[in-house]
Each structure stands twice: as C-alpha cells, then as structure tokens.
Nucleic acid binder design. Structure first.
Length: 501
RNA sequence: GGCCUGUUCGUCUAGUGGUUAGGACAGUAGGUUUUCAACCUACCAACAGGAGUUCGAUUCUCCUACAGGCUACCA
C-alpha cells in the first residue's frame, strides 16, 4: 500500500499538464465542473499546470457570452487556470476558433503523407447509404468511395467547386490498445472505425481531430475527461500515431446521472454551477460533494476541504460506476459548511445577497434601521447559523429582523380554538417585557416568571410570543431574537398581533 | 444493428475466496430543547439473475438481463 503510493507519487512531476476544454454552448454544467475539478486537483497534486481551452469550433452552436459564464463559474468554485484565453500562456491561442490555420496545416501534412484524403460525398448521399444499411440491420461505415478517386477526378471536382471534407484514413486490421486509468486495458479493432471526418466542408476541424492537435501542441500529459469520451479515444490515438506522437495518459470519469439514472438534465433540477451559487450553496460544499461522486478516500471520510483533497486525491481510486446526483446529500454538506463557516465570512456572503436582492432606499416593507447592518448581522449570525442548509434559507431566516412581518390567516387564527387565553398572555408578555431588559437572559427570566404567574406552560408562552413577533411557528431562538429585535419593535409586534385576535 | 463500459442498502460508497458485508446522506423511532434546526442514541436497508471454478464465492470465469456511452460535416 505504502509502496504503491510512493510509486504513484513518482509519476507526479511538474511537467504534468492537464486541461479542461469546455465547449461554450451554455453555462458550466455540474458534470463538467467535476471534470474541471478533478483535472485541477491532479494538477495541484502534481505541481503541474492546469490549462483552460475553449472548444468553440462549432460556430453554429457556440455563444460568445457563455465563455464568460463558464469562466466566472470556475472562478467562483476557486478553480484557477495557469493558461487560458484570458491569461494567455506559451501555447496559445486557447480558443479553437483562433487556431483554425493550425488545424489546416496539420491536415495538409496528413494529406501529403496519404494519411488523410479528400471526400466529395455529400451529406445527403451519405445519410441515405447509412439509412439503407441500418434498415437492413447491417453494420455501416463509410465506403471509402473517395479514396479511390484519381488525381484527375479530384482536380476536376475541385475545379467544379464541389464541397469536400477531409477524412482520416483509418489503417486496416489494427488493434488499438490503450490503458485507461479507470477502466483499464481497452482494445478496439480498427475495422469498426470508419474514416472519420477531420475537417468539415466549411474548413473547420472536428472535435476528435482538433482536440488531439491541441493536446499535442499544448503538451498535455494527462487527459482527464468524462466517460462519454471513452469510445472516442481510439480515434484520437490513431491521430497521435499518424503524427508520430506519444498519446497522453487517459483517465475517463464515470458519468453523473439524474436520480432516474438518465443523463443529468434540466428536468432533474439545477444543473448549472451558476444556479447553485444563486441558491446559496458554498463553493466548498459543491466541490466536496463533486469529489464524492466517483471518488472516495478510505472508509469513513466524507468531509474534505480543498487542501485535504489536494493531498488525498488520487486518480487510481476513481471508480467506474456512474453516479446519481443526490441533492439532499449536497444540501446536508452545504449545511455543514455553513455551520462551520467563520462568522465574518458568512456575514459578507449574506450581506452581499441582501444588498443584491433589495433596494434599501425604496423598499417600504423595510424597517427603518438598516444603517447598522453590520452590527446587527454580527448578532444575528451566531443565532441562526446552525439552521439553514443554504444561504437562501439564511435570507428568509433573517428577513423579519429587517422587514415588516405579515400575519397569514392561519397564523391569525392559530389560537382561536385553543384553550389558552392568548390575549391574557400577550398582555402579560407586553407587561413583563416593558420593564428594564438588558439581554436574552433577562428576557427568558421574565417570561419564565410570567409562566409561573399565569400557570401556563412555558412552551405555550414561547409559542405565542414567537407567532406574534415572527408571524411564524418557527423562528430563531426566541430570547436572542427578541433582544436583537429590540424592545420597541417587539412590543409593537406583540400589540399588533393582539389586536388581530 | 455494431462496438465500448458498467451493475454492493433508496442514494454516494468501503470491502473480502471464509466478515454479524462497514460508513455517510435520506428515512423511521427516541433523547435533548422555547419552535425549527443542530447534536446524541437506536432502527431500517444491499452484493442484478443463472451457470461454472472451488471445500467455500458478493469477490475469479462465462452467459443472460438491465443501464449508460460511442457509432454526426456536436463536443
């Protein structure tokens, strides 16, 4: 075991270069975030470089603003890159749309070496051939019609201006072997791989080709990506071979699925990192949860800080089984991280959300005093921090301190048919809270006295006061709440509620 | 259709040729408590199925089933 670890540590060296290569078709997907994170962790652990590359070869699908969206989400998670479109680096540019000529150059090289050829077959014709084959339950693969074209035919076609693509010539009768860190030894016979297109008729490279060119030129040593790319790997290895370069090490990560076992998508709930941020998740919790999907350490550890993960993370202990995304475990983890957050940090996060969501100047449901927001939050946060699972829940736990409360009909009628005399208790409470009160201990003492005096259980009294001052059956600890609310506001709410009865 | 990959409690996972198959989340019950949480205790709950190898298989092999991926001028 120890020996293993040492051997493995040897393979880490600071020449390690990994990359995260998202396609900017939308926000940062939770599954992509894990891929990015595992790459990042491996780079940190190896003292290597983490590269961000934008795979925007498909102009039709890519949207410019999503590049920033993705970068912002990565930054929010604390996943920083050593080289990338914004920070540059020695192997740029880091956007495929800016590397078109590079792909062309290498395609020409392959063409010259007869490792690739021009194909003039139209997509319509090919589609038809494919349909026919599939209908007959036959295996389909491109028939290499254009490989047989003579120089003369080719020139004629070119002169006529017929659209063409460049296809990679897949060698016959070869077995591609590679060793995946997670899935082990994989062998594929080239007879099932067709001569795939590497440059489209519009001159742009396709994924399986451009990714390899970039990985070669960017000196990527370890490719860590989703399991959906496992089947693409043999094709890519073919290109490494054709260019006489050594393929990197491959690690494919098991997929993240929705609760029903299908691909994680919008109907399963939030899938973008952005929405987790908005819902009030902490990046630490999200990363911790993501790390637990497909990877584990030892037998009993679940909570990992980022530093822990850098120390303990290990590609060899990634498992093969696809994982279903469990929102409730993430919630639990987030609650854990909120509870254990530093109060100052929590305050800043909460403040940021408050300031973003409300307009203090014009909101007329606001209670006058927000000028000493910091001071108030300093008191409120220790009172509530054990409760919320998200920052969003913090917002609502805190809001009655700052906003006017509204009694629902359920709350107004709550004591209607109960045997206690709400009015009497409220009067008593108003009375006993009107005296000199310093802190929550005094408040509790006075209310316990009231309980004795009226011969009503303390629980009942607390319930009634809670409902009166919070318009809810649930509140932060009552006495602390009253203390922070202040005598004036507390009495006002008690009276208001009494008048509604 | 072809090829690749996978299958341990509901979920994430640990683990082994002989274990009462361990932990965490969720769930249930109880305790604590001014409510809700938090916290503590207990409970619930799994080796997909079938052959084979073996004294013995959850563990090794094969088959089946199911699931996922690839099979695009998407990435």
């Amino acid at each position: 075991m120890i020996l293993n670890k040492q051997m493995e540590d040897k393979s880490y060296n600071n020449n390690t270069r990994v990359r995260f290569a998202p396609s900017p078709t939308g926000f940062l997907h939770i599954g992509s975030a894990r891929t990015a994170f595992f790459n990042w962790l491996f780079a940190q652990k190896s003292n290597g470089k983490f590269i961000l590359r934008i795979e925007d070869t498909d102009i039709a699908r890519h949207q410019e603003n999503t590049v920033n969206l993705i970068m912002n989400s990565l930054k929010w998670l604390g996943i920083n890159w050593d080289e990338g479109p914004d920070v540059g680096g020695d192997y740029g540019p880091y956007r495929q749309s800016m590397r078109i000529n590079i792909y062309k150059e290498y395609a020409q090289k392959l063409l010259n070496e007869k490792k690739a050829y021009l194909c003039f077959c139209s997509p319509e014709v090919l589609k038809k051939k494919k349909e026919v084959a599939l209908k007959a339950d036959k295996f389909y693969r491109y028939d290499r019609k254009c490989l047989k074209l003579s120089r003369k035919d080719i020139n004629q076609n070119l002169n006529k201006g017929i659209d063409y693509v460049i296809r990679f010539l897949v060698p016959d009768n070869k077995i591609i072997n590679f060793n995946d860190t997670v899935y082990g030894q994989i062998s594929i016979d080239t007879k099932i791989i067709e001569d795939f297109i590497i440059v489209r008729s519009n001159g742009l490279a396709t994924y399986n080709y451009s990714a390899v060119i970039d990985d070669i030129l960017m000196k990527i040593t370890h490719v860590i990506r989703g399991e959906d790319h496992l089947s693409n790997t043999p094709k890519q290895i073919l290109i490494y071979n054709a260019l006489n370069t050594k393929p990197p090490s491959f690690t494919h990560l098991p997929m993240i699925l929705g609760q029903d076992g299908t691909k994680l998508s919008k109907r399963h709930g939030s899938i973008s990192i952005e929405s987790y941020k908005d819902e009030g998740f902490l990046p630490e919790a999200v990363l911790n949860y993501l790390a637990l999907l497909g990877w584990s350490y030892g037998e009993k550890t679940t909570i990992f800080s980022k530093d822990d993960l850098i120390k303990k993370f290990n590609l060899n202990s990634i498992n093969k089984k696809p994982a279903k995304f469990d929102y409730s475990k993430l919630l639990w983890l987030n609650g854990h991280y909120i509870r254990n957050s530093d109060n100052e940090i929590l305050k800043e996060l909460i403040k940021e959300r408050m300031l973003k969501n409300i307009n203090f100047k014009s909101d007329d449901t606001l209670i006058k005093s927000t000028e000493n927001l910091d001071e108030k939050l300093d008191k409120i946060i220790p009172l509530i921090k054990e409760r919320p699972k998200t920052l969003q829940e913090c917002d609502s736990l805190i809001s009655p301190f700052f906003f006017k409360i509204k009694y629902s009909t359920e709350i107004i009628n709550y004591f209607k048919n109960k045997e206690i005399s709400a009015t009497k208790i409220l009067n008593g409470a108003i009375n006993s809270l009107s005296g000199p009160i310093v802190n929550s201990e005094d408040i509790e003492k006075n209310l316990r006295l009231l309980s004795e005096k009226l011969d009503v259980s303390f629980r009942k009294i607390a319930e009634l006061i809670r409902i009166a001052i919070w318009a809810s059956k649930v509140s932060p600890p009552l006495f602390g709440t009253i203390e922070i609310l202040g005598k004036e506001l507390t009495l006002e709410r008690l009276k208001n509620y009494k008048n509604l009865l």
